[in-house]
Design a protein around this nucleic acid. Structure first.
Lengths: 190, 190
DNA sequence: CGCGACGTTGATTTGCCTCAACGATTGTGG
DNA sequence: CCACAATCGTTGAGGCAAATCAACGTCGCG
């Protein structure tokens, strides 16, 4: 079974024939490490399903500091969702931090597919519900957890991520400086 | 046109007859100030559309501090969405901070309706997309904005909210102490 | 009218940032 | 394949913003 088929099947039932018709609007694309998938100012027509690799979505503020919104690894979806959903120009970067094998899909194609196959819309509604829950939990964590606790939660929700991304990138996800993260980690060992 | 019909029409087209059939699964409920709609440990079967009034969703951490996830005013939807979507027991409080007139709808009824009326599912998918964007922006704001900037953004995105909720509740939404908020506001006036 | 909840102000403490220096590791060009 | 440069992670010193703790005035409600 195709990796995407398996992924979708976790949420809704789908015959091989149904999957084939859905899969028509997806296109496999490959990018090497450091490739910038999306940069500020662009219009964002696509979202991406990660077959293999790791990506990071982040912004750069006026003072030049990076702030990471999310990482995406195998079987995650990614894009600049602010631009993708609103049609506004992007303010985010989406960068491959490993060589990446992705499935690209155009929002327009997806919207048309929803009309023909309500099942597919159900799948994406379900995805959005899960994302909604994850975001709400993240906002809560930022409100009541210490930097150290947030670090611990992060590590357990993205297994093996430490081997795949730079520490300063993790720090920019947690909202702390790389120095601070370094100190938190050395404290934990003692 | 009914307030809910008007609200849904902003996103999808809906005839009067279609609205009537949808409206069947909604029930009007009224609560007075301080009523606790949802408390920790409960299962959450419903979400609510606010016809009139103001509600607050928050948690209380181990040290007894409150942390506000969201406020809901007229024409907003609210619930403990973590519990509502996952089926887990609630960890949040949803409290009426004014006398409230609400439309209650059961998730189960909504899911059945989706099968009959894909349009309705499209509406809620659209809602989720907007919420997703709002959350992503909020997470970004927390990463790169100062407390003062976040306060300013908050005030402009919830107009007149200052007259409706307590300052310590706003502070707990912004992730700062009431003392800090008080000082920020007195600075701004100068 | 009296009590409790709330908002404000002041004094003190602290968690985290900034700046800076120094290895270690990675990447690159000769 | 090696040498050098750039990037990254760590550690230390110093400073600042925001939290904490405490006191007091005020408002609203029972």
């Amino acid at each position: 079974m195709h990796q995407l088929h398996k992924h979708i099947s976790q949420r809704i039932e789908l015959t091989e024939a149904e999957f084939e018709s859905i899969y028509k609007i997806f296109h496999e694309v490959n990018f090497s490490r450091r490739h910038l998938l999306i940069g500020p100012g662009q219009t964002v027509l696509h979202q991406y399903f990660v077959l293999k690799g790791c990506l990071r979505t982040y912004m750069i503020d006026q003072s030049g500091k990076e702030h990471t919104v999310q990482f995406a690894v195998e079987n995650w979806w990614t894009s600049d969702y602010i631009a993708y959903y609103t049609g506004e120009n992007s303010i985010l970067y989406v960068e491959c931090i490993e060589d990446c094998q992705l499935l690209q899909v155009k929002r327009e194609d997806l919207m048309n597919l929803f009309k023909q196959a309500p099942k597919v819309e159900s799948f994406f509604r379900g995805q959005l519900e899960s994302a909604f829950v994850a975001f709400q939990k993240r906002i809560l964590s930022n409100l009541y957890m210490s930097a150290e606790e947030r670090y611990r939660v992060f590590i357990s929700s993205y297994p093996n991520i430490e081997q795949r991304v730079k520490n300063y990138q993790i720090a920019s996800y947690l909202g702390i400086t790389p120095e601070r993260l370094s100190r938190l980690r050395s404290q934990r060992i003692r």
